[in-house]
Amino acid sequence: MRRSGAWMTIWDDRILEVARDRDSVSPKELEETGYFRISRQQISRRLSKLKDHGLLQHLGNGVYIITERGERYLAGEISTYEDEPDEIRDTSESPNGVGEPGNAG
């Protein structure tokens, strides 16, 4: 399960999902998908925020790609809570169903 940080919006997950499925994304391309009910300027701000948190990489000219950290977030492997360290949550190894930090199989 994904643990979104308080700084994230519903649009951030969607942006990351589209970025994962494409080679790259830009505000214009994201706006043209029809998936977003926010302006191109708002999309641009969300892209920048995702970059600031290491989930996207800015290649220049408004073009972004998803990072390994972004992929791991989408897979539910890391949290984006600002007060939590990134950690892999592996619940399959713990007898009580709660993953232990550093127990990544």
Rank of each mutant, 00 (worst) to 15 (best):
74 L>G: 02
105 G>Q: 07
45 R>D: 04
64 Y>M: 02
19 A>V: 12
74 L>I: 06
25 V>Y: 03
61 N>H: 12
60 G>R: 09
29 E>F: 04
80 T>K: 02
24 S>M: 12
52 D>H: 09
13 D>M: 14
94 S>Q: 10
100 E>R: 14
77 E>K: 09
45 R>N: 11
15 I>M: 10
85 P>C: 08
101 P>C: 08
54 G>S: 09
50 L>V: 00
87 E>M: 05
33 T>M: 06
8 M>L: 10
45 R>M: 11
79 S>F: 08
33 T>K: 12
50 L>A: 00
23 D>M: 10
64 Y>G: 02
105 G>R: 11
13 D>R: 08
87 E>W: 00
56 L>E: 01
9 T>Q: 14
59 L>Q: 02
32 E>M: 13
70 G>N: 01
71 E>F: 09
80 T>H: 02
19 A>S: 05
93 E>P: 07
30 L>D: 01
55 L>T: 00
16 L>M: 11
100 E>N: 10
84 E>Q: 11
40 R>Y: 04
55 L>K: 03
20 R>W: 05
12 D>G: 04
59 L>Y: 08
63 V>H: 09
66 I>M: 06
101 P>D: 04
23 D>C: 08
22 R>F: 13
45 R>A: 08
71 E>Y: 08
39 S>L: 06
13 D>V: 11
89 R>A: 12
87 E>P: 05
23 D>A: 10
70 G>S: 01
64 Y>W: 12
67 T>N: 09
5 G>R: 14
51 K>C: 11
62 G>V: 11
84 E>S: 07
55 L>W: 02
7 W>S: 12
14 R>K: 14
67 T>C: 07
41 Q>A: 15
32 E>C: 12
65 I>M: 12
26 S>T: 08
44 S>Y: 03
52 D>N: 12
80 T>G: 05
99 G>V: 00
1 M>D: 03
51 K>Q: 12
53 H>G: 04
100 E>L: 14
22 R>N: 13
105 G>N: 11
42 Q>C: 11
25 V>T: 02
90 D>G: 06
19 A>K: 01
5 G>Y: 09
35 Y>T: 07
79 S>I: 15
28 K>V: 10
40 R>N: 04
65 I>R: 14
82 E>P: 04
45 R>E: 09
62 G>D: 02
26 S>F: 06
39 S>Y: 05
101 P>G: 03
61 N>L: 05
48 S>F: 13
27 P>N: 04
104 A>F: 09
24 S>Q: 12
80 T>W: 05
92 S>K: 13
20 R>F: 06
38 I>W: 05
20 R>K: 14
90 D>Q: 05
44 S>L: 15
86 D>E: 14
11 W>R: 09
33 T>Q: 01
99 G>T: 01
14 R>M: 05
88 I>S: 07
22 R>G: 07
6 A>S: 10
37 R>C: 13
25 V>N: 00
25 V>R: 04
64 Y>F: 09
83 D>F: 14
14 R>N: 13
6 A>I: 07
63 V>A: 09
89 R>N: 15
88 I>M: 08
63 V>Q: 15
31 E>A: 15
